[in-house]
Amino acid sequence: MLKALQLEPEKCTGCLQCEMACSYENEGVFNPSKSRIKVFTFHDEGRFAPYTCSQCSEAWCLHACPVEAIVVNEKTGSKDVIEDICVGCKVCTIACPFGTVNYNADSGKVIKCDLCGGEPACAEACPTDAITYVDADHTGLERMRAHAAQTVSKS
């Protein structure tokens, strides 16, 4: 079963546990500035929203890469950056419509979410289940269930 990250902003409290988990998993330090997932705060609305790569099927970044450094991970379906091949040209960061591929000045390469090879650390760390790793064909299942419950209670 192919799985995908499901992000539910209404459950997010803005604690940044996901950013720390991501940066530690990938860089070996607790460092939100090196996280592939970001939590945005909309202060005046009192809202928080985690955001990261949705692993597009026809990935702009992959097609844009001139050296074929971005490849499909057959196991997870993620689009992974092969660091040894990446030349840091940043064309993928321009191609991505969502801004989820970013340049890392320390390494001279780009970084993006690779689903941690199938065990995403952000989902593991999220204390409120705002980030979960679920069946990619049914990311709407819980929302469907919630609305279904409403129709039951109304009838």
């Binding site: 409290t13 803005g14 604690c15 940044l16 546990q17 009192g46 204390p127 409120t128």
Partner: peptide, 13 residues
């Protein structure tokens, strides 16, 4: 009350 909110790293919020 609009929502609860966490400080850095807090799982209580």
């Amino acid at each position: 009350l609009v929502t609860n909110a966490a400080c850095f790293g807090c799982t209580i919020a």
